[in-house]
Simulated scan of single mutants.
Amino acid sequence: MKSIATDGWELVSAEDRNTAHPNTFHIPTREQRETLVPGDGAKLLFDIEIRANGVIKDRGVERMWVIVKARSEGVYIGLLDNDPVTAENLQLQKGDVITFGPEHVSAISTPPRDYVIEKYGVSFFEE
């Protein structure tokens, strides 16, 4: 599991945010979040801590897209499809493998298959 202390980031539960702010933070239904397939896009909430020279400069949540590659034992495995901020302590970059659960999904999209193949290759859809 990724953590702020070791990786400079961790995932935030979209379900918890929705529960705390049901009128302003909307998420897809649980059923929609549990039935993602390879090639689907899932917007996740990344809590990121930015350090410079060992000092915390900023901390906040960045919403970024992950393209689902597979599902295994109730969790999704996908590739980060955004460029995160850069910081000396941040172990996160575009193309990184991200493991997440339905509770982390704040939005869903279906990017064109050609887009996914162009960025990640035809093998993306092979098991």
Rank of each mutant, 00 (worst) to 15 (best):
R30E: 14
G78A: 06
V122K: 12
A20K: 13
V85D: 06
P102F: 15
V12E: 06
R59S: 15
T6F: 12
G41R: 05
V105A: 00
Q93F: 05
M64Y: 07
A87F: 01
L90Y: 02
A42C: 07
G60E: 02
R51C: 12
Y115R: 10
Q93V: 05
V68P: 06
P112N: 13
G41N: 09
T6D: 14
N18M: 05
I56Q: 15
E10H: 01
F100H: 03
T29I: 03
E127C: 07
L80Y: 01
G60M: 04
L80R: 02
S72R: 12
A52M: 08
T86A: 08
E103H: 01
F100E: 04
I56L: 15
R30F: 07
W9M: 02
E73M: 14
I98N: 03
G95W: 09
P102N: 15
G54L: 12
N23S: 14
A87T: 03
V55C: 09
D58C: 07
E49W: 01
N89Y: 02
I56M: 15
R33P: 03
D40E: 04
N82T: 05
P28F: 07
G95L: 08
I50L: 13
D83E: 14
L79K: 07
A70Y: 11
S3E: 00
E103N: 03
V55A: 13
F46S: 00
I50N: 08
G60H: 10
F125C: 12
L80N: 02
L44I: 04
I77N: 04
Y76K: 04
N82C: 10
L36A: 04
N23H: 13
G121S: 10
K69E: 12
E10Q: 08
L79G: 01
L11I: 00
L90W: 00
R17S: 10
A70G: 06
G74I: 13
E62A: 10
D7A: 11
T24I: 13
E73P: 09
W9V: 01
K119G: 06
M64P: 06
L80D: 01
R33M: 06
D7C: 13
G74Q: 11
K2I: 01
V116K: 08
I27A: 00
P84M: 05
A52N: 08
K69Y: 04
L11N: 01
D83W: 07
E15G: 03
M64F: 09
E88Q: 04
N89C: 04
G54N: 11
H104E: 03
P102H: 14
T6W: 08
V55K: 14
E31M: 04
E73R: 14
